[in-house]
């Protein structure tokens, strides 16, 4: 029994070793790159959720009956769309910290993750508000009138009649904006977050193989964008035929 047990343990350990070796391949940076990719995805998804909310507010602001609200949202979105993404990101991170320090009087630093998410969400919303406004305007006026005639409150009309239809129309446009957001999320490495780019940078400088590791990062991004495109196609198909 003893030799068989020994053999069993040794094969198990061998197997374990191989699995470990597999996990940390890419010159030992496999796991690091994986965690980096997870950070990138989580920043992008958080920014998407916050950005959708902000885009909805922006669209409602642009469609508001008050001229001042309309003017304010239109100016704000135009400003954000007009300056480089990098400037928005740095403006929120460094400018936000400077503002907080100015207001509160202590040396404060905005959290890099929160600043990154907020900046990416803001950029998403500046474009998304336009998309959503367009799709709200594409809904025939009769829909709203019919809902009113049926005695629906204006809140219910919005959540049950207008929003689902606008969502359907806006989906392809928002899908493209998600791809832009996902690609822009590479910028957060410049704030010092340990995302995919940051890990690739680390691996590149430690192994002296920058081409290889930036290429790996690019391919991971390519996989993410391709997967998003495929799933968006399915989602659009499903919502239209629902």
């Amino acid at each position: 029994m003893e030799p068989i047990k020994k053999l069993f343990i040794s094969t198990l350990e061998n197997h374990k070793f191989n699995a470990m070796k597999y996990l940390i391949s890419f010159e030992g940076y496999g796991l690091q790159l994986f965690w980096g990719a997870l950070t990138t995805i989580s920043v992008a998804v958080c920014a998407l959720l916050l950005g959708l909310l902000m885009a909805l507010l922006g669209a409602l602001g642009e469609l508001s009956h008050h001229r001042s609200v309309r003017w304010l949202t239109l100016t704000l979105t135009a400003l954000i769309r007009g300056v480089p993404e990098l400037l928005v990101l740095f403006g929120i991170y460094f400018g936000g910290s400077a503002l907080l320090t100015l207001v509160i009087g202590e040396d404060l630093q905005v959290n890099a993750f929160i600043a990154g998410v907020f900046a990416l969400a803001l950029i998403f919303a500046a474009y998304g508000a336009q998309t959503l406004r367009g799709s709200f305007m594409a809904i025939p006026g009769g829909q709203k009138e019919a809902a009113q005639a049926l005695g629906l409150s204006s809140r219910r009309t919005f959540t049950h009649i207008l929003l689902p239809q606008a969502w359907r129309i806006a989906l392809p446009g928002l899908g493209n904006l998600w791809l832009v957001l996902l690609k822009d999320s590479a910028l957060i490495s410049l704030l010092g977050l340990s995302d995919l780019m940051n890990k690739a940078q680390m691996a590149a400088s430690n192994t002296h193989q920058p081409f290889k590791f930036y290429m790996i990062a690019a391919l991971i991004f390519l996989i993410l964008t391709s997967l998003s495109q495929i799933s968006f196609k399915k989602l659009t198909h499903k919502t239209i035929h629902a």
Binding site: A186, M197, A200, Q201, P210, A218, F221, L222, T225, S226
Partner: peptide
């Protein structure tokens, strides 16, 4: 399908 920042890094570094 890839971020411009990565492309710039691939070419420069």
């Amino acid at each position: 399908g890839t971020p411009l920042l990565v492309q710039i890094f691939i070419i420069y570094y």
